[in-house]
Amino acid sequence: MSTARTNRFKWAGRGLLVVYTLFVAFPIYWTLNTAFKPLSQIGTFPPTLYPKGFQLDAFVWVLSNSRAIDAILNSLIIASGTTILSVILGALAGYAFSRFSWVDPGGHVSFWLLSTRMFPPVAVVLPIFFIYGQLGLQDTLIGLILLYLTFNLPLTTWLMRDFFDKIPISFEEAAFVDGYSRFQAFRKVIFPLVRPGLVATMMLAWVFAWNEFLFAWIITGNNTSTYTTIIPTLIESNQIQWNNIMAMAAVVATPPTLILIAFRDNIIEGMTLGMTDI
């Protein structure tokens, strides 16, 4: 009887997984399905479950639309710039937090830093909007790059501290005893070992900056629109060109998805703030 019940649990659990897998996969499928369909097959009843007459027009439209291309390039520059800054600053601070316990007693300082990330971003962007107005940083790439440090720097600091913590202190002490300075020990021993974590941290910071909308919507203007800011206003004709929008969605979602697949373990560890190590 006990096995019968165990089996029931097992099949219920597996059933739930199947249903949920469909739930996760369906919107992804529908995005691609819509992007490859001609407009006439969109919004029909019954729905067109797969594209009849597979066509690439929507993707061609995205890649030849100068507004979309410019926005994607802006996003690329801003995300990359903020990633470089936040990873450099975060790695330095994370190293210090990990190796000099007196600058981070009980982990309180780094936790406090992380907790600033929990504050609603609108609390930051409201004053920043006016400060940037004064400083002439509105609608500039550097303005958004700096603003994105608000959420990325606490993240990179926290994650890098976590990745440094995984390297035993004795690794450095052994190098000191053998005659290496702290900097040399870092270069020869710590850096090669922390590199996978560093790459994952970079990727995650990049993805968060790439996907950001609220700050960009408020700070950017015509010169520096990111791809997220044009998604609400991309189509101006009477009929919404869903195939074009979904092609755009597919294009901009591709880099983060590839990053997830390529750096899976460390990205998952980073997404859960270091809690999950699969």
């Binding site: 035993p168 004795s170 690794f171 002490e173 052994a174 005893v177 021993v189 070992l193």
Partner: peptide, 10 residues
């Protein structure tokens, strides 16, 4: 020179 408890081999 020192041999550490966890050996600290790289």
């Amino acid at each position: 020179s020192m041999v550490f408890q966890d050996l600290a081999l790289y």
